[in-house]
């Protein structure tokens, strides 16, 4: 009996190992490329040199303003994620704690609207923001602020639902106790709901941030000068059609971009998995 059990376990390790090779192979290859020679042609499966030339290119070559892209992405995605989650939090609080006319209709309406993602109306968004650009260049196409504003259009979506569901689990008795003590709705929100929801908000914000970091379509339509590119637009423009020549610097850039996200992800893994089971999809 004992022997049979051992026999049955080894294949599990085998399957998992094969999957592991599949999932890690590209990652290892990229790490090797980042510290290897610049071209794709000269890279070997196991790097035989260890140089930092590729990182040097990213930090010094004026044609590849990688640090600017990094900063742009940080600014755009962080501010948009904070604003998105704030807006969603306010709305979720209203839907969770207030009873008002049209509440159910609004909730259903929001749900239906989610089926029409912004991606489907990019033509309309582009034309709208181009017209805005003609009058107010600071917030139209070509501007990062315009891009952030467009991102905020998606704030009242899935996150509002997720957070409303979470707020619903916070006992109402807490609010009522605060009310008895003379707290306003604003105070109840900041002193009671927010502290209890902080971990949840952190995860939602991280997922929003990753989703925004991944946006290529809107960012590429809005940001059309190299200096203003985000990482997604910049790295795509940098590498497309140039794999043979620029593979090394690109791999270095990919590594620098992915590393912070992977580390954050591992820290928040438990919460993210819980969020996933609730039905969240990576944006």
């Amino acid at each position: 009996m004992k022997k049979r059990n051992r026999d049955k376990v080894w294949w599990r390790y085998l399957v998992a190992s094969i999957a592991l090779i599949f999932s890690l192979m590209p990652v290892i290859w990229v790490i090797g490329a980042a510290f290897g020679p610049a071209g794709l042609t000269t890279q070997s499966v196991i790097p035989h040199v260890f140089v930092l030339d590729n990182f040097k290119v990213l930090f010094t070559d004026e044609n590849v303003p990688f640090l600017k892209w990094y900063r742009n992405s940080l600014i755009v995605c962080t501010s948009a994620a904070i604003l998105q989650v704030s807006i969603a939090t306010f709305a979720a609080y209203a839907f969770s704690r207030f009873r008002f006319k049209g509440r159910r209709v609004s909730l259903v309406g929001l749900l239906v609207l989610q089926m029409f993602p912004q991606l489907l109306s990019i033509v309309a968004i582009y034309i709208l923001m181009y017209k805005v650009h003609l009058v107010f260049p600071a917030i139209g196409t070509g501007s990062a602020i315009g891009l952030i504003l467009v991102y905020l259009g998606g704030a009242m979506g899935y996150n509002t639902y997720l957070l409303k569901g979470f707020f619903d689990t916070i006992p109402k008795e807490l609010d009522e106790a605060a009310k008895v003590d003379g707290a306003t709705a604003g105070q109840t929100f900041t002193k009671i709901i927010l502290p209890l929801a902080t971990p949840m908000l952190a995860v939602v914000m991280l997922l929003s941030f990753i989703g925004l970091l991944n946006d290529f379509v809107l960012a590429s339509l809005f940001l059309q000068t190299t200096d203003k590119y985000t990482l997604a637009v910049g790295l795509q423009a940098f590498i497309s059609g140039q794999y043979e020549q620029q593979w090394g610097p690109f791999a270095a850039g990919a590594l620098l971009t992915a590393l912070p996200v992977i580390i954050l992800f591992q820290f928040l893994q438990r919460y993210i998995v819980e969020g996933l089971s609730a039905g969240s999809v990576k944006g």
């Binding site: 999932s23 890690l24 590209p26 990652v27 990753i210 970091l213 991944n214 290529f216 997604a232 790295l235 795509q236 990919a254 971009t257 992915a258 996200v261 992977i262 992800f265 591992q266 990576k282």
Partner: peptide, 9 residues
């Protein structure tokens, strides 16, 4: 790990 890497990359 593939899930944690930004998709576009």
């Amino acid at each position: 790990i593939p899930y944690a890497i930004p998709g576009f990359l």
